Simulated scan of single mutants.
Amino acid sequence: MTVKTTLSFTDRHAEFLKSKVEEGVYASTSAAVAAAVEEMIRDEMEREAALNAMADEIRARMATPREEFIDEEEAFSLGDAMLRGPDDE
């Protein structure tokens, strides 16, 4: 289904859309706007997936028993070694 609507753009945005249509990147201004909206939808879905993954990881870590924790020496030793590099050892 297609919905007809009226949109207003700044001169800058209108010129950009017009140039993309003239370059053949998009068939029409409507196609360019639709592509931008699709990208916004994808971005939002990716952001939501990332936030959900972080929330799941936080929940999993919160459920980890204290006896399974590792101390800071063990946690940061690999990172420290990587930052120092082979010549700094």
Rank of each mutant, 00 (worst) to 15 (best):
M1Y: 01
M1Q: 04
M1P: 01
M1R: 03
T2D: 00
T2V: 05
T2A: 02
V3Q: 07
K4P: 00
T5F: 06
T5C: 08
T6L: 09
T6S: 12
T6R: 08
T6C: 03
L7C: 05
F9E: 04
T10P: 09
D11Q: 12
D11K: 09
R12S: 15
R12E: 15
H13G: 02
A14N: 12
F16W: 07
L17S: 01
K18D: 11
S19R: 10
S19A: 09
K20M: 10
E22K: 15
E23C: 13
E23M: 13
G24A: 08
G24W: 09
A27R: 04
A27C: 00
S28I: 00
S28P: 00
T29F: 00
T29L: 01
S30K: 00
A31K: 04
A32F: 01
A32D: 02
A32W: 01
V33C: 04
A34V: 10
A36F: 05
A36C: 10
V37Q: 05
V37T: 06
E38G: 00
E38S: 06
E38P: 00
E39H: 04
R42G: 01
D43H: 14
D43M: 11
E44M: 04
M45C: 07
E46N: 10
R47W: 06
R47D: 04
R47G: 01
E48W: 02
E48D: 13
E48S: 14
A49V: 08
A50M: 13
A50P: 02
L51E: 15
L51P: 01
A53L: 13
A53H: 10
M54H: 14
M54D: 13
A55D: 15
I58D: 03
I58Q: 09
I58A: 12
I58L: 14
A60R: 15
A60I: 12
R61M: 15
A63F: 07
A63L: 13
A63M: 13
A63Q: 15
T64F: 08
T64W: 03
P65H: 05
P65S: 07
P65A: 08
R66H: 14
E67V: 04
E67S: 05
F69R: 13
I70R: 12
D71L: 03
D71H: 11
E72R: 14
E73W: 08
E74N: 11
A75H: 12
F76Y: 08
S77L: 07
S77N: 06
S77D: 06
S77Y: 05
A81W: 02
M82P: 00
M82Y: 07
M82T: 07
L83R: 13
L83H: 09
L83I: 08
R84K: 13
G85I: 07
D87L: 15
D88N: 09
